Amino acid sequence: MRITVIGGGHGSYAAAAEMYEKGHDVVWWRRDRPAFDALLAVGALQIDDHRGARTVPIGSDGGVAIEADLGAAMKGAEVVIAPVPAFAHEDLARAMAPHLEDGQVVYLPPGSFGSYVFARAAAEAGNSAKAAFAETGTLPYLARKHGVDRVVVSGYATRLPTGVFPANDTDRALDVLGRVYPVERSEDALSGALMNAGPVIHPPLILMNAGPLEHFDAWDIHNEGTQDAIRRVTNALDAERVAVREALGYGAPHFPLADHYSADGDEWMYGNAAHEKLTDSGDWREKIDLHTHRYMREDVEIGLALLTSVGRWAGVPTPVASGLLAVANAITGRTPDTGGRTFEALGLAGLDRGQMTNLMQDGVAL
């Protein structure tokens, strides 16, 4: 299968390597094309995981192809995997919109309701291609880059609840994605967005560890930063997410984050004991700038703001999420809707339940 990987982050590196190793025809594009020069000079990407270390050829015949032109990169692709931060979605959606083709599936892992952003961009560009936009609750990889030519994968997703926009294309889209990832059906794109674990796990960890993060050169929020008091806040925040899902009529499984921390609970997205794999790797001991890090810009200012806005629309109180947004605002000086992904900012707050259902089911009208 021809697969296009978008981006130059941890997830994109891992995706390019895994898709190649699975035997797919892989094309890789990133906005900053010169950033690939060092990797091309080496000619190979090293991947380290539970199976050991090995290399994937980059730029050579039969290897992962590096493409400078986005249109050329997308041409003929059956799946476009875009594990990019949500704050990059608007620009990327506009850039991709003219190049979408019939039958393509664009996968956003995770999406923060980016599937709607991409579909709307295609409609605004006048592209009538029958493409599907899908999103899930987490990156398919616990991964970190180590330099320009090495990625370490501490864990792979075993369950990826995935919503599709428009939902009337779900069967086809999941059939295609099922040849790539362990996807599971979510009702629609908004259901998939409300599976996003980042806005639940990361805001309490960075905001309640703000002191250590500013004091130490590096701090592991997932290890010594994960204490019982913070876990209780995370559980309360996750309960708000589940309450919003239930108010919208979305059914179980809701993938509660508590299962991520449990060694013997229901299998979560990364399987059991994934938290231990993450902390044991040591790869998440890092410097987190509270103003610029993606945990703030993506998970708080986009993901958490989206959750509270959906709660307002559905009539579900979200006091913990709202409180965390207020703390973030005090730290950064930016407003909670900075990321522009609230229902209000998207122009969806005025829809009634029936109109929202129709939008999720049928897509954006051209």
Rank of each mutant, 00 (worst) to 15 (best):
G7I: 11
G7N: 07
G9Y: 13
Y13I: 04
A17W: 15
V27H: 13
R33S: 12
F36H: 04
A38C: 10
A38R: 15
A41S: 12
V42R: 15
H50K: 07
A53S: 14
T55G: 08
G63E: 14
A65R: 13
E67I: 11
L70R: 01
A93G: 09
A93N: 07
E101W: 05
D102H: 09
D102R: 01
P109Q: 04
Y116E: 08
F118C: 06
F118Q: 06
F118N: 06
F118K: 03
A125M: 10
N127G: 08
N127A: 14
E135W: 09
T136N: 13
G137H: 01
P140Y: 05
S154P: 10
L160K: 10
N168L: 12
D169Q: 14
D169Y: 07
A173H: 06
D175E: 15
G178L: 11
Y181M: 14
V183S: 00
D188V: 02
L194D: 02
L194W: 03
N196W: 08
G211V: 13
A218C: 13
A229R: 10
A236L: 08
R241P: 06
V242L: 12
L248Q: 08
G249E: 04
L257D: 09
S262D: 12
L278E: 14
H293Y: 09
R294T: 08
L307S: 00
V316K: 01
P317A: 03
V320C: 08
V320Y: 03
V327I: 11
R334Y: 00
G347I: 01
L348N: 05
G363H: 05
A365R: 15
